[in-house]
Simulated assay, not measured.
Amino acid sequence: MAGVKDVARRAGVSVATVSRVLNDSARVTAETRARVLAAVAELGYRPNAVARSLRTDTTRTIGLVIGDILNPFFTELARAVEDEARGAGYSVVIGNADERADRQDHYVRTLLEQRVDGLLLCPTAEVTPLVRDVVRDGGPLAFLDRTLPGLDVPTVRADGTAAIGALVAHLAALGHRRIAFVSGPALLSTGRERTAAFTAALRACGLPARPEYVQAGDFQAASGRAGAARLLDLPEPPEAIFAGDNLMALGALDEIRARGLAIPGDVALASYDDVPWFTHLDPPITAIGQPVQELGRRAVRALLDRIDGRPVEPVVLDARLVVRRSCGEPAEQGSDETEGRLPR
């Protein structure tokens, strides 16, 4: 495997110059930078932080790269990871990918260069060369919440299939027949899984899966509002809207209220991901809650097992339906919510 000295020899520069180019220093001319990068490409050189095992040096730190720090789900997940890691004597360094592959890779590279002992990654949709290299090099790595196709990496995630089925059955029991979904991006494993579960749940309840009732979003509030607007503009608008995450539910809520519509009188609303502020709305929002604390705990344990060289099996936890009043009748006499149970 080529080293930094090989790159320096090929480019006709010093090792220090190669280091400055790889660290994007301004103290290098454009011609020299181009020559060094050409040598890197020709030799297939990868910086030692990527090529070497993450376990060469022990720092008692783990890295966590999450999808979107503004999403309450990821914020709570990061807190759960930090709490569990601290209890095991580790510190956590967090990077926010903002759902972008380039930012994800920036933080992965930075964390590796800082010699973290292991890495937890909530991957973006794209299998980047850097992530593929990290997997190939066999350093302690685990995926959290999401998977990537073709990569054999231990993953800790929640399965919402049964909970989505329970939600659609709940909506059907309340008399809703036109049920729509604002989905997450199809490139993300969570987006694909939730859309497939929603379609299967409609079939199980004998309801039609109308293509116009599935609007693509991107797990951001603006796409939730835009998706809800398209649904409500249909000649036959849905009676219920299910948003694929909490931020898109917020966007859908904004659109419904902007039109002067009542929840659930004019349109029912439900969300994947439960967040604390759902209980403070009027009416409180029916949601599918993920076991966020347990996801964080299990992810840290899985990563520490990998750091110690122990075998790690995939972890799949169940999400649950939390019935509140945003879809119709109260969840339960005298109560704002019923976890995992349908109203009698």
Rank of each mutant, 00 (worst) to 15 (best):
P330G: 12
G184Y: 10
V18A: 06
D336G: 06
R55I: 07
R9V: 01
A26N: 03
V292K: 10
D305M: 02
A319F: 00
T190P: 07
I285S: 14
D68Y: 07
R194Y: 12
A226M: 10
V65P: 01
T58Q: 15
L281M: 13
I263M: 09
A11F: 08
L188R: 11
D105E: 10
N23A: 10
A162Y: 02
N96L: 05
V275H: 12
A80G: 13
V300N: 15
E212A: 08
T195V: 08
L207Q: 04
P149W: 03
A172H: 11
G89R: 13
P291M: 09
C327V: 14
T195Y: 03
A2L: 06
A163H: 11
L317V: 11
P264R: 00
S19A: 11
P208T: 02
D305C: 04
R324Q: 04
E239M: 07
P284M: 08
V316I: 15
D152C: 04
S53Y: 06
E126C: 01
A180M: 08
A216W: 00
L234I: 09
P72L: 06
D83A: 15
G260E: 05
E84K: 03
D308V: 05
R79Q: 15
G244M: 03
A258R: 11
G251L: 04
A209S: 13
A26L: 05
